[in-house]
Each structure stands twice: as C-alpha cells, then as structure tokens.
Write a protein that binds this DNA or RNA. Structure first.
Lengths: 191, 191
DNA sequence: CTAAAAAGAGACAGACCTGTCTCATCACCA
DNA sequence: TGGTGATGAGACAGGTCTGTCTCTTTTTAG
C-alpha cells in the first residue's frame, strides 16, 4: 500500500532523482545525495519506494509517460506522416541544444543495468519498443505495414545514434534528418 | 616510469578488466573483483595503473586499437566502398550474435562518465570519431567529400542504434543495412 | 651467484553505500 | 481536543569502495 497517494512528496522525490540521475548516472548517485537535494528524510523516501532500484524504475516510467503524452498529442494533429516524423526530430534537436542535455537516460540505464531480467532493463525495453511501434503506426499511413516496421526500426536507430553523438558534442541531427528522408523515400508507396 | 614494459601482467589485467567491465559495467565492477579474477595482488595492479579511471581508459584504448587494426586490414582489401561498408555491418552482426554480447563498451562508458572533461569521456569520443572518419574516407571513393561526411555520420548513427537495439534483444541489423543502402544510394555519384 | 626489480599477501584507513530502526514532531480531520 | 498518519532527524549496522602501506617471496638480469 502506498503511504500517501495524493502526497506531493512522492513526485518531488521522483523529480529530484530524475535530475540527479541524468547528471551523474545511477550507481554514482547515492541515496544520501537524493534525499539531501530533495530535502527530505531518508525514511520518507524509503516509505514511498522500497528500494533504489524501484525508484529508478519509477523515474524511467515517469519520463516515458511524459514522452508518450507528447506522442499522443502529435498523433491527433492533422498533418502528414512525414511532418509528424519531422516533428519528432524537432523535439530531439531542441533537446540536444538544451543546457542540461546529458544524453538519453534510458540508454544510460541500459548501460548500467545490462541484465535482461532486471526491472530497470525491462523499463528501458518498454520505452524503446513503445517509441518504435508508435513511429511504425505513423509510417503505416504512407507505406505497407511490413515496410513501416523496418523503416520505424531504422528511424529509431538513427535517433538513438544522433542522441549519442549529440552527447559527444557532435550535432548530427541534420544528417539524421537527411538519412530519414532517404529511408522514408525508399520505402514509401507513391500516391 | 612504467614498472615493466615487457611484462605480461599488465595486459592480463587489461584483459580481465575488459571482460568484467563488459559484463557488469564500470562503477559496479570493483577493484577487488578485478584483482580476484585476474589472480594478482592489489599492489601489482596499482603499480601498473595509478587509478581505476586510468585502467578504464587503458581498457578502452586497447579495445579501440584492436578495432582500428581491423579497419586497417579492411582498407587494404581491393573491394568496392559498398563492400567495405557491408563488411563493417557483417562484423557487427557477428558481434551481436555472440554469446557474451553486452552492448557497446564505449557507449556504456559514456553513460557512466558524462563529464566531457573526464579522460574516459575523451577516450570514447576519440574512438567514435575515428570510426566515423574512417567510414568517411571509404565513402569518399564513391561520393564527394561533403556528401561523404554526412553519410558517414548517418552510418555511424545507424550502427550505434543497431547496437543498442541488439542489446535489447531486438536484432535490427538487417533494417540498418537496408537503411544504409538507401543513404549511400541517395548520396552516391553515379559513375 | 647476486643484486635489483617485480609481484604476492594482507592489513588498514577513510569514505561511501543501501537499508533499518527509533523517537519526536507536524498537519489534518473528526 | 484528541487521534492518526505522514514526516523529520539522525544514529546505526553491515557491507563495499578506492587507494596506501609494509613485509615477504619470487623472478629476472648482469
């Protein structure tokens, strides 16, 4: 039973942990650091989250949920599939340019929790699969489903790679865009 | 002054640390674990490597060197640029299928050492830049240099993304290959 | 054979880690 | 006002971490 479903403390811990994990990584960020930054007692945190691992999963799910809602709004817009994909690249470009960009939290989580049975690993796989299937759904408007599956996978790979390069200080989102256009162009059915 | 330039102990430590870092990550793999697995005394390790961070850099540079030599041999082969790129994808495909594949060690290092001033970060940036520039050199045989630069970046992004997806148990190297063909086809100068 | 270099063995320090426990305090609601 | 649940504060346990130190043993080179 969660101690306080309506409490703001829980989300505050998630927010603080999110910021710290992003900057310093998961193993390198200790519980003591999180509770100091969030200005709460240690027991308050452990009453909400039974372990650090579960807090990490919660942070990832929270972040994934926000991104998912962004995709919800995108899908409701009355624009072409190409424009929707372009908007996803826009989001990433803005993200890369931000002051506190430190790479993809999910990719980092995968790096630190490589065991496929670990809950953190599963949370990462969930998020990446969701993004891929949603891009696939978008692409199915302009190409047959089997083509859309491969194209969505290719777009996801480009985005992941672009995020990694952006973290190394090499903005290549423009090249990713051009490559995405070539991929979609090669798979699209002319209308 | 390095204690023993010709000693095999040093490389043995690097090999052991490489295997452990790959499986368990950097922060999660302690010095004690490394020396136990390598069956050496702790002081032997610290005489060769002044700190854990420098050992990590050494491991990364060693791995990068091996990959670089593989690229050297590839460049000497008398095959087309497309065939060379295809061979690089072959290497990755075999790597992904291996039993002890745990993702890209360099990407993982970047996840755990996100500070651009950190020696580990710089070692990662070196390796990725080298791979990109070498792919660019290959592509310049079939397209103008400015096109080759963008195409090489796109190929690197695809490869990084494919590695990440492979780690999540979703083999997408075939889709990456098709996307690479579309990218090269769009940028190539017909001869 | 001998002297120097390398390695082994293990104690040790000091810090940090996760997670638990107790008790006092505070807010809110009936 | 009284009670109840959430929180604060901090000690504490038990473990792990990196890195240092000393002493002994082994290996290597001249």
């Amino acid at each position: 039973m969660t101690p306080s479903p309506a409490s703001g403390k829980r989300q505050h811990v998630v927010d603080t942990a999110y910021a710290l994990f992003r900057q310093g990584g998961f193993h390198a960020t200790g519980i003591d650091r999180i509770i100091a930054e969030a200005d709460i007692a240690k027991m308050t945190m452990y009453r909400h989250f039974p372990s650090k691992d579960e807090l990490i999963v919660e942070v990832l799910d929270y972040r994934a949920g926000r991104f998912d809602r962004q995709l919800d709004r995108l899908e409701q817009e009355g624009i072409t599939a190409e424009q929707k994909i372009s908007k996803i690249f826009d989001w990433h470009e803005r993200w890369f340019r931000g002051d506190d960009f430190h790479g993809c939290l999910f990719a980092h989580a995968l790096a630190e929790f490589g065991d496929p049975g670990h809950p953190v690993f599963k949370a990462v796989a969930r998020q990446k699969n969701r993004l891929r299937s949603r891009m696939q759904a978008i692409l199915e408007d302009v190409m047959p489903p089997d083509c859309a599956e491969g194209a969505a996978a290719a777009l996801l790979m480009l985005i992941e790679g672009a995020t990694l390069m952006a973290q190394m200080g090499q903005p290549a989102i423009g090249n990713a865009r051009k490559a995405a256009a070539a991929i979609i162009g090669a798979a699209s059915v002319p209308h």
